[in-house]
């Protein structure tokens, strides 16, 4: 049984995810094999690009059901960027597309106005400070990360989470609160790219890997 499987469905740069897992002591396996995916011990769902393209690529390779089977087993999954967004009910990027429906909420365009009403730039591209919401970070993928630690965001769409209790971390884009991380049990999603967030990001990936031992 593979230890950590990265779902491989031609969704952009997964080499960096793979390499980050390796330097954090994991043994990543890239796979688009439904059986390998549903029987993984840890699963990472990456995603770069448009939501619709990503979710249809996943479905056309028949990988949605194995992911849902995996999640049902209660083992940890980490969605990154569009991989995180796909955990939700759906996204409004270029029309409405249904997601995996694992976390209630929808993905919508990042508001083009700051908190003071002036317009700001989209895509939202920068290093942003992570702030807590309702959930504690202890024993999560953010265990040991300091409030205010910075991670790299690059996105035009963001998750609007129905139940605030699912939100693990937020960031402020010129005063507009955006969802940065979600957690529902062993389901984790990160809007930012931990594999591109230097030592803070690597710590988060290490934390995810150690969830396997914690079980």
């Amino acid at each position: 049984m593979a230890e950590l499987v990265i779902v491989n469905y031609d969704a952009g740069n997964i080499r960096s995810v793979e390499r980050a897992v390796s330097v954090c002591g994991g043994t990543p396996v890239l796979s688009s094999d439904p059986e390998v995916i549903s029987s993984a011990n840890l699963l990472i769902l990456p995603g770069v690009g448009a939501f619709g393209k990503c979710i249809s690529a996943l479905r056309s390779k028949n990988l949605d059901k194995p992911i849902l089977d995996y999640v049902r087993s209660g083992k940890p999954i980490l969605g990154i960027c569009v991989g995180m967004q796909m955990l939700f009910d759906g996204s409004w990027e270029f029309g409405f597309h249904k997601g995996l429906g694992l976390i209630p909420g929808e993905v919508k365009r990042v508001p083009e106005e700051s908190a003071d009403g002036t317009s700001h730039r989209v895509p939202h591209v920068t290093w942003q400070e992570l702030e807590p919401k309702h959930q504690p970070w202890d024993d999560s993928v953010l265990d040991g990360i300091h409030f205010g630690a910075s991670c790299y965001f690059i996105h035009s769409y963001a998750a609007f989470v129905k139940d605030e209790n699912d939100v693990l971390a937020t960031c402020s884009y010129n005063g507009v609160e955006l969802c940065a991380a979600v957690r529902r049990g062993n389901l984790y999603g990160l809007q930012f790219h931990p594999e591109k967030s230097g030592s803070v990001g690597l710590k988060i990936i290490s934390n995810f890997i150690s969830l396997n031992e914690a079980q």
Binding site: G12, V48, P123, I154
Partner: peptide, 28 residues
């Protein structure tokens, strides 16, 4: 392992390339 690509010449000669690439890989 790149995250973004920068295009100049090819976009100047055929601007629609920008939309085509953005639609597949995302504007970001």
């Amino acid at each position: 392992g790149a995250d973004k690509v920068a295009i100049n010449t090819a976009a100047v000669s055929r601007p629609d390339l920008i939309s085509e690439l953005a639609n597949v890989y995302g504007s970001q």
